[in-house]
Design a binder for these strands. Structure first.
Length: 203
DNA sequence: AAATAGAGCAACCGCTTGGTT
DNA sequence: AAACCAAGCGGTTGCTCTATT
């Protein structure tokens, strides 16, 4: 969450969120009590930013121990990676990024972290949310998940690569993946949608 | 103006992976 | 080689906002 919506969330949190009942006006920090869950407050953000700036990323459980934040290491890592990192891009995906995401998904499937590595300033969570939303939209519109041109492009690239190198990289070989995945997106197995999808696979 | 539905997003949970002892 | 632990990843949930009725 960023800027505007975050401000809303924070102000809401400070007014009537159940989490506030823990006695954490401005964030339940510094306690040895139970770890806090739910939306982060700006006070908690500030503590996390300060800690990571000083000590660097990694060793997330130490963050909880030494900064006084009542958050588990996992939660700290996620908050930092998705919202506080200074190199994050804010705002909607550009058309170029959208196209890139589709291309990457054709090649990699639901490997959000790997996709994020190819899109500087974007997070795996952001890409995952974008993709899931996009799939729903296209399903509603009766459109294929992958635009035909991108499917074909990826398929061609793959065939080329397979000729160059018979090794599988450990991922699903992507021609197989294309045949399978265009029709069987994990979230929508068994849904009528598939009938309407474009098939890039020779029968 | 109020109620409802749907979309979007942040955060959590559980599993996997990789490193250390 | 096995056990343990921390970090990372992907799926899912739940909350808020917005559009529609």
């Amino acid at each position: 969450m960023t800027s505007e919506s975050e401000e809303k969330m924070i102000s809401k949190n400070s007014v009537d969120s159940p989490y506030v009942e823990e006695g954490n006006s401005g964030g339940n920090v510094g306690g040895n009590g139970p770890l806090k869950k739910g939306p982060w407050t700006s006070a908690e953000d500030a503590i996390l930013i300060e800690y990571v700036t000083k000590h660097g990323e990694g060793n997330w459980n130490a963050v909880q121990k030494h900064s006084g934040l009542a958050r588990c290491g996992k939660s700290c890592r996620l908050r930092w990676a998705n919202h506080l990192r200074p190199d994050l891009k804010k705002g909607a995906f550009t058309p170029e990024e959208e196209r890139r995401i589709i291309e990457l998904h054709v090649k990699m499937g639901n490997k959000w972290a790997r996709m994020a590595a190819e899109l500087p300033g974007r997070t795996d969570n952001e890409i995952k949310n974008y993709w899931n939303t996009r799939i729903k939209r296209r399903q509603r519109a009766g459109l294929p998940i992958y635009p035909p041109d991108i499917s074909m492009q990826a398929l061609n690239e793959n065939q080329h690569n397979e000729n160059m190198d018979n090794f599988s990289t450990g991922d699903i070989r992507h021609s197989d993946f294309l045949c399978m995945n265009v029709f069987e997106t994990p979230q929508f197995n068994g849904i009528e949608l598939n009938r309407q999808l474009y098939s890039p696979c020779p029968s």
